[in-house]
């Protein structure tokens, strides 16, 4: 089983979960996802996901100006984002439950 493929399916949920806890910029989100155990997350995938969630209205964004370097773009969650997060969380819980059931049955045999 390819972890990269698994991550892709749940990346929206994972990113929303990270942002819901605290605003963050792209690489910060990547780092926090990896720290949480999702080692196989791709940098560009995270950036793209952030952008897509923003376009879908699930995230807010703001730029933090820098005096000596390039500007940094932060993302934060909004009401729509929390709704998406809750919905997807339910979907995920149901999915995991189904998988757990399958696997425990398989393990019992």
């Amino acid at each position: 089983m390819d972890p990269t493929q698994l991550v892709k399916g749940v990346l929206d949920l994972a990113v929303l979960a990270v942002i819901a806890r605290e605003d963050g910029y792209g690489y910060d989100v990547v780092r926090r996802l990896r720290a949480a155990g999702l080692e196989d997350v791709g940098d560009a995938s995270v950036y793209g996901t952030l952008r897509r969630l923003y376009s879908a209205g699930a995230l807010t964004s703001y730029v933090v100006a820098s005096e000596e370097g390039p500007h940094r773009k932060y993302y934060g969650i909004n009401a729509e984002g929390r709704h998406v997060l809750a919905t997807q969380h339910k979907t995920w819980t149901g999915f995991v439950a189904a998988m757990d059931g399958l696997l425990s049955e398989a393990g019992a045999q």
Partner: peptide, 25 residues
């Protein structure tokens, strides 16, 4: 929009890992 902040992020990444960006990304 999509590349705003990318330089800052990748600079941080580069400083952190020290590895070539092409290897990492």
């Amino acid at each position: 929009e999509i590349t705003l902040g990318m330089e800052a992020d990748l600079a941080e990444l580069a400083a952190e890992s020290g590895a070539d960006l092409r290897i990492r990304l």
